[in-house]
């Protein structure tokens, strides 16, 4: 066993009673959480060690899957490369599509370019503002709708009418309505994230088993305590799903907004590249969008994980 592995095991022994070997990864994660809260240097080092060894373990266990994924991606790159170098034009036209090498070199150049980071930074800021606002409004509205028939019948019609309208369709009106272009882009981002969050929260609240509410009542809990200790945690898995979906949708609403207006942002960067006939940058922009979208969805899932730890225990 590696040195890191041994460190991880030492932590296990201290924190949890013996568990079956196949559950070891879950246990290590827990060890990481408990140790980070203390935050002494040694603890952090141990926790990092545990995390690394866990990552290594996961890699080893998923070696075949990872290998196959890499093979598949390499093949994809190869096809892309061949299609562009032979300028294939068979229904789909590759004549103007940049080759992977050109895209990579364009990306490499941009990494040393401040403006590129400004584009990314501006987009991230819009996502953050729009998404957090959507999360606050969405969770609050979903909870109130789930617990009150009156609120539900007042709000739900708006959701039904507004939800099918795609973000792009909002752009003209958003520009007319909001005082600044920035505000209108954030508004569109917010709108994209809002509906999945509201609807998933509502669903989660409605799914709260009535027997748990009754149990809490008989144990003396007030309405507020029932909300905090029963309804919210019960709805949390569904809310977490809504937040993850909402993050994805807010990216693509943002892009719609940025393409049509604004002077910064990764969407603007992509569209600008098209206007300037700078084809490799189009693909750079697309890949950055894909990467950021994936990373931010992953970040949301990671943030929710400690709150949902109890679910892992269910058999």
């Amino acid at each position: 066993m590696s040195k890191l592995g041994r460190v991880a095991n030492a932590i296990d022994d201290k924190t949890v009673d013996p568990e079956p070997v196949e559950k070891a990864t879950g246990v290590e994660k827990e060890a990481v959480y408990t140790h980070v809260s203390g935050l002494s240097g040694e603890d952090v080092a141990k926790a990092l060690g545990a995390l690394l060894s866990q990552a290594a373990d996961e890699l080893r266990r998923n070696a075949t899957t990872i290998f196959l994924s890499l093979v598949s991606l390499t093949l994809g790159l190869l096809v892309w490369h061949l299609a562009t170098s032979y300028k294939v034009d068979f229904y789909i036209n590759f004549q103007n599509v940049p080759s992977p090498a050109k895209v990579f070199s364009a990306f490499w150049t941009h990494l040393g370019d401040t403006e590129f980071y400004i584009h990314i930074g501006v987009s991230m800021q819009r996502i953050l503002t729009g998404y957090i606002t959507a999360a606050v409004i969405g969770i609050a509205a979903g909870v109130f709708m789930g617990r009150s028939k009156l609120v539900r019948s007042l709000i739900y019609p708006y959701i039904e009418v507004l939800r099918p309208i795609p973000a792009v369709a909002w752009i003209p009106l958003a520009i007319l309505m909001w005082p600044t272009e920035e505000a209108s882009i954030i508004y569109i981002t917010l709108l994209g994230a809002l509906f999945p969050i509201v609807l998933n929260t509502l669903h989660g609240v409605e799914q709260t088993p009535e027997v748990l509410v009754r149990a809490a009542k008989s144990l003396g809990a007030s309405q507020l305590q029932i909300f905090w200790h029963v309804i919210l945690p019960s709805a949390l898995p569904s809310i977490a799903a809504g937040l993850a979906i909402g993050m994805g949708v807010s990216w693509f609403s943002l892009l719609a907004g940025e393409i049509i207006s604004g002077q910064y942002g990764i969407g603007y960067f992509t569209w600008d590249a098209y206007s300037l006939i700078n084809y490799p940058d189009i693909v750079v922009g697309m890949l950055v969008i894909g990467g950021l979208g994936t990373l931010s969805t992953y970040a949301v899932k990671l943030a929710m994980k400690p709150l949902l730890a109890w679910q892992k225990r269910a058999r």
Partner: peptide
């Protein structure tokens, strides 16, 4: 105090 037929423990606690 009430004890129910269905399991009514809070699964997240």
């Amino acid at each position: 105090g009430m004890v129910f037929q269905q399991y009514s423990l809070f699964p997240w606690k």
